[in-house]
């Protein structure tokens, strides 16, 4: 359909002349208009549609706001839950920790904590499913303390540490005080050579431990 744009206004001169002759009669017979009720019905429908559009816009805005609120709340909850979702990762050597190989899980033997005197041993079952610092805490707890809640365990550990600090140091199952009493007995009995040997052994076992004046000489 090729159309000359100039033809839109005047489609065809002969046709236009014919139409002009009809138009005068046409106009006189064209007094018909839609009834008032029909006008009202159309305008009401248009108004309802325009208002519902505004309402939908408002609802769309509210819906978007509600969705954004839910997303923000969900994200907040997830962020708050994250630290409790799993055990803490084991410390790495690069972080300044010395890793102690936990052989108990593989060999089934109790893990003995390093130190001058073993305070407690750890049953093999204890190592199953445990990790990180929980393992190191349990390693120093007494046997049978497994059933106790974590708070009780930590209190027990603190009490044990305080007791150990209060106690005199031991060497070979003998405390420093017992050893000093024995040294005094050797001195009183006049066994000088034996006393000298024992004193050397005592000083190597308890370096810096204060000696009574009679032994310090």
């Amino acid at each position: 359909m090729t159309v000359n744009p100039g033809e839109h206004q005047h489609d065809d001169p002969a046709l236009e002349r014919g139409l002009e002759s009809i138009r005068s009669h046409w106009k006189s017979a064209s007094g018909d208009e839609p009834p008032g009720l029909l006008d009202q019905a159309v305008l009401n429908a248009a108004r309802r549609e325009a208002e519902s559009r505004r309402g939908r816009r408002r609802l769309r805005w509210l819906g978007g706001f509600a969705t954004a609120t839910v997303v923000v709340m969900a994200a907040t909850l997830v962020v708050r839950q994250l630290p409790y979702q799993g055990p803490a990762p084991p410390p790495r050597e690069g972080d300044g920790f010395r890793l102690e190989p936990d052989t108990s899980a593989e060999t089934g033997e109790p893990m003995v904590p390093p130190g001058p005197a073993p305070l407690a041993t750890r049953p093999a079952e204890e190592s199953r499913g445990k990790a990180g610092e929980e393992k190191s805490v349990r390693a120093f707890s007494a046997p049978g303390a497994d059933a106790a809640p974590p708070e009780a365990q930590s209190l027990e550990i603190e009490e044990r540490d305080a007791t150990a600090e209060a106690q005199a140091p031991e060497a070979g199952g003998v405390t420093a005080e017992e050893w000093i009493e024995r040294l005094l007995e050797l001195k009183q009995s006049g066994q000088k050579e034996r006393l000298a040997l024992e004193l050397t052994a005592f000083r190597s076992a308890f370096p810096g431990y204060p000696l009574p004046p009679e032994l310090a000489e």
Binding site: D39, V42, L43, A46, R47, A50, R53, R57
Partner: peptide, 14 residues
């Protein structure tokens, strides 16, 4: 959403 625009349009073509 301009209802007045529709009223004007309607008057032209009704």
């Amino acid at each position: 959403g301009d209802m007045q625009a529709f009223e004007q349009l309607y008057q032209r073509h009704r």
